[in-house]
Amino acid sequence: MSLDKDTVRRIAMLARIKVPEADLETMAGELNNILGWIEQLDEVDTDGVEPMTSVSDFRPELRADVVNDGGDAERALANAPENANGFFVVPKVID
């Protein structure tokens, strides 16, 4: 599988990262280089192998349904680049 410029543009959009048009080719090359190296995984026979999502084989205690957090808007907003009237503020969203 090889990435073309359109794919790079698409995944850059998915990741919300700007890749200037002029850099798309270079970026595609770089990523293809890495993906090409990764593709040696195809050599591994994984028929019937369950994918491993976690090394943890225990099941954790769950949280009791108790309100013991929140209640402090200032704390939530303390590091916000922009806030007003208790809200986080962003440029207007246009649907």
Binding site: A15, R16, I17, N79, P81, F88, K92
Partner: peptide, 20 residues
Amino acid sequence: VRYGLRVEGDSLQDMYANTR
């Protein structure tokens, strides 16, 4: 939106992409 760097943009999407 909630912390760290923000680089403004013409739109929300622009702000996201500029910031990141």
